[in-house]
Nucleic acid binder design. Structure first.
Lengths: 155, 155
DNA sequence: ATTTCTGCAAAGGATTTGCAAATTC
DNA sequence: GAATTTGCAAATCCTTTGCAGAAAT
């Protein structure tokens, strides 16, 4: 990671841990949670601790380098700040996350801000449903309790 | 609560605790979290336990009587199923939640479902920003660290 | 009488924090 | 050398769960 990436706020230091973590987040195709990131990072630096992961994620968030998402009620997921704004569609069957764009959201921010007197800083659209595969399974009647359990556990 | 409210699924029993909790949720103007609901309910029935609150909320959710929201990363909030679909705008300063309508969201569900091959079941739009009061405080320069802390703690 | 619910206390899981040692600037 | 960061372990916070007794059908 370029040193300047972390020095937006003066006193942030460029450590091996932060380099590693930010690098992994950038390479990651999907959205990682803290523990997934931790496991990946341990391969490269086994001494790294989970607290450091959490502390780094907090820092990256504050520096605007990553975004935090709450797809389910349990853990939070992270992705590096995307170039183009997008939103998320989560499959209730398998947990797969699909991204999509929604240009009208910008207009919505402006409109609601005006109507409610808020300064709107962020707008997120969050869709849930069933992905093509899970729909197929449902149709085939294989999505009974057991089958579905399998899928959910695989998340 | 009318008995039939709970008997959508055969085996659900009509207990004093469930009546009380659902009643409070219906009266509540805003969105309660589990502990707020618990505290309110204890006034009327001091022996009630927090586990019962959680178990009841889970049931109400399954019966489609209440909706669960995740406004921040910490706790979940609940509201009785609203007549008209609406979304939420959360103030980052004071936590105040403002509701708004967005009819175009239905169209979005259909469009994304078609484009991605998903069966989209739900769509939520979630905005964050600063409410009129907090904007005012920011302008007055009173929203410095201390002041902001005050507000956040009052949530 | 049978099944479902409750309260209690304990367990769980994700995230945060205090502190001394290690690292960066 | 001074200030920041790390790893570890313990602590927190919200939520869930096991179980025996209480309540509903």
């Amino acid at each position: 990671m370029a040193k300047d990436t972390l020095s937006i706020q003066s006193s942030k230091r460029d450590t091996a841990q932060r380099q590693l973590l930010l690098g992994l987040l950038r390479e990651a195709e999907g959205h990682l949670d803290a523990d997934e990131l931790y496991q990946q990072a341990r391969h490269k630096q086994p001494s790294l601790s989970l607290s450091t992961v959490y502390r780094s994620l907090k820092l990256f968030k504050e520096l605007g380098l990553v975004e935090e998402h709450q797809f389910d009620g349990t853990r939070r997921h992270y992705e590096t700040k995307p170039e183009t704004r997008h939103h998320h569609l989560v499959c209730l069957g398998c947990g797969r996350i699909t991204e999509f764009k929604c240009p009208t959201t910008e207009r919505l921010k402006a409109r609601i801000g005006r109507e409610k007197g808020f300064e709107v800083t962020e707008a997120e659209v969050y869709l849930t449903g069933y992905c093509p595969d899970c729909r197929q399974r449902l149709l085939e009647g294989r999505a009974d309790a057991e089958r579905k359990q399998e899928i959910v556990e695989r998340r």
